[in-house]
Simulated scan of single mutants.
Amino acid sequence: MRILIVEDEIDLCDTIAEGLQIDGYAVDTCYRGDVAYELISTETYDLVVLDLNLPGMDGIDILSEVRKTNKDLKILILSARSSVSDKVLGLDIGANDYLSKPFAFEELVARIRNLLRRSFLQENAVLLWNEISLNTVGRTVSVNGIDITMTKKELALLEYFLLNQSKVISQEELMEHIWNMEADSFSNAVRVHIASLRKKLKIALGYDPIATKIGEGYYLNGGKSLC
């Protein structure tokens, strides 16, 4: 999943980003409101963590403008403005959640997980498909109850497949949601990581659960073809 952190306290912004990257998220950072609005308008994000006191453009103004054209993007306000009236205003304008500073990083991550599950109508923290189980809290994968060791990118790819089980997913979509802005869209990173993920799952399952639809992308294949 790809997340944008908008926070003018650079050290805090970078610390949040590093923590989320450790958990396997693709993260972009931004320290100005006007730049953040431009990024949200031109890039693809699954969730935005938004401060309110920002140079260039206030967070409330960003939220208001974004909601005019994008009702689906999950936005979590993270702000020192902690009064009830501030929270009511943010939620009424269109924030999906509001967390006041100071905060515990573990709570922020839990709220992010919850919002992302809601994006995909997924209520359970454990994603299931045939013999595969992925725990989104513990960031672990098992096949038939046996743990499988995966890299962060492999786990992120598998999570995206499990959240989109009936869908053919293009390489471009995977690049948009699993990699951040620093990734080279012309590289073969997606194919390399897909190949590695396939190899591990094939060893564990005895078959390759990821199929390719030529010219369109990849999909989970439990023995049924979408061609």
Score class of each variant (00 low, 15 high):
Y45E: 03
Q21W: 07
I3K: 13
L155W: 03
D34G: 11
V126I: 12
V143D: 13
G59T: 00
W179L: 09
G206K: 04
D23W: 15
T136M: 10
I132W: 08
K213H: 10
I5H: 08
M57Y: 10
D58W: 03
Y45L: 02
R111A: 00
L155I: 05
D184G: 09
M1S: 14
K101H: 04
S79D: 10
Y219E: 04
R67K: 12
L197V: 00
S83H: 03
R32E: 15
N144V: 06
E106H: 14
L121N: 15
T29F: 03
L76D: 00
I16K: 06
I5Y: 07
T29E: 08
V35S: 15
R113A: 02
L197Y: 00
I169S: 05
P209V: 01
T29K: 03
S185H: 12
L73D: 01
D51I: 02
E173P: 07
D11G: 11
Y45C: 05
A189I: 15
Y31N: 12
D97W: 09
W129E: 01
A36L: 11
M150I: 04
S142C: 04
G206D: 04
A36C: 12
V88R: 04
S196F: 06
N96W: 01
L52T: 06
I112G: 05
D11F: 10
F161V: 01
I5K: 06
S170I: 02
L47W: 11
G206H: 04
L78S: 00
L99P: 07
Q171L: 13
G217S: 02
W179M: 07
E172Y: 14
T69A: 05
T44G: 04
V49D: 02
N114P: 06
S133E: 14
T69M: 03
D28K: 00
F120C: 02
V190T: 10
Y218E: 04
W129I: 00
L63E: 05
S119W: 04
M181V: 09
E65R: 12
I148K: 07
E9T: 14
F186G: 12
Y98I: 06
Y160H: 14
S79P: 11
L128C: 11
R117F: 06
N70M: 05
S79H: 06
A211Q: 06
M181Q: 14
I148E: 08
A125Q: 13
G56T: 05
K74Y: 01
K224T: 13
D8P: 14
K199V: 00
P102C: 03
D46T: 08
P55D: 08
S187V: 04
T140E: 11
F120D: 02
F120E: 04
V192W: 03
A26N: 07
W179T: 05
F161H: 02
Y160K: 08
D28M: 01
N53G: 13
K101Q: 09
R117H: 10
V168S: 07
V88S: 07
L99R: 01
V88Y: 09
C30Q: 07
L155D: 04
E9R: 13
V126A: 07
Y31R: 09
I178S: 05
G217N: 01
I5M: 14
S185Y: 12
C30T: 02
V143C: 15
A17W: 03
Q165N: 04
E106F: 13
Y98G: 06
E18F: 12
I203V: 15
R81F: 11
E159V: 09
V35D: 14
A17Y: 04
D184H: 11
